[in-house]
């Protein structure tokens, strides 16, 4: 590992959907730059909730409270403008969601369109080619760029969504079970892609698939009932878990 600069820091981050309960409880962790960090844990333990706190998705729903701090390059996200944060923190959702009315071409550029940024034709073409190449989709779609993004297969759609997020050159990419709707081959494609991408961007990925976490991540978090139970090198977490709950989850006794 060349660099150990922290890019993202959770400091006692809490998220609550209702007054009585917290879905994420006092999570503290430091994410290093240009790494892939996997977030694991049984269903309902707050993985998505934690992830969505990072790009201020919770701001959309007035009842949701986020407390504590989340630092992006040392700056507290929670006091920043949502728009500024989201430009620097991209997100890929569980179900591929290319914009159905836009062509593949426009989908890749949608980040610019939605931010009101005008590009010249040459800049557009260059962005498209670069982004689609970096998600290994270029060869498959270069002749059908004007077709709707929804014509692609699920795996291709998901790669298109990754390309769309990458086009904005984010510092951090959040991925919520990005391969759970895909078949093994498409999943393999995306995993290879992520390993490639970590040179450019720090990735935080929620996964239910322990094999996937082992294959791609250098650090892993294990969450349980909203708490961050264990956070360490992926190898250590799998081979030598400290907490009983982590052990139980990894051995399939829970989850």
């Amino acid at each position: 590992m060349e660099s150990v600069t922290p890019i993202l820091e959770f400091k006692k981050t809490c998220v609550s959907y209702t007054k009585q309960t917290m879905a994420v409880k006092y999570v503290s962790a430091t994410i290093e730059k240009n790494t892939i960090t996997a977030i694991m844990g049984p269903s309902g333990c707050g993985k998505s909730t934690l992830l969505r706190a990072v790009n201020l998705m919770h701001n959309l729903y007035p009842n949701i409270r986020v407390d504590g701090e989340i630092l992006l390059n040392g700056e507290n996200i929670l006091t920043m403008q949502a728009i500024d944060v989201r430009r620097r923190v991209g997100m890929v959702f569980q179900r591929p969601a290319p914009f159905p009315t836009m062509s593949i071409y426009d989908n890749v550029l949608s980040g610019f369109t939605l931010n009101g940024i005008k590009l010249s034709k040459a800049e557009k073409d260059a962005t498209i080619e670069h982004c689609l190449k970096s998600v290994a989709l270029w060869d498959e779609v270069k002749d059908v760029l004007n077709k709707k993004g929804t014509f692609l297969s699920g795996g291709q759609q998901q790669r298109l969504c990754i390309a769309r997020a990458l086009a904005m050159k984010p510092d951090v990419l959040l991925m919520d079970e990005p391969t759970s709707a895909l078949d093994p081959i498409a999943t393999k494609h995306i995993e290879e892609l992520l390993l490639e991408l970590q040179k450019e961007v720090t990735i935080l990925i929620v996964t239910h698939n322990m094999g996937q976490a082992k294959r791609i991540s250098s650090k892993s978090m294990f969450m349980y009932l909203g708490e961050l139970v264990e956070y360490s090198d992926t190898e250590t977490l799998f081979s030598n878990p400290v907490d009983e709950r982590t052990k139980a989850y990894l051995t399939g006794k829970m989850g």
Binding site: N55, M57, L60, A82, I83, D84, R86, R87, G90, M91, F93, R95, A97, F99, P100, S110, G111, T113, L114, N115, C161, R164, A165, M168
Partner: peptide
């Protein structure tokens, strides 16, 4: 809602 969220997640207002 995922479409709206996807759009907002890209930084659109």
């Amino acid at each position: 809602a995922s479409l709206k969220e996807a759009g907002l997640a890209l930084g659109g207002n």
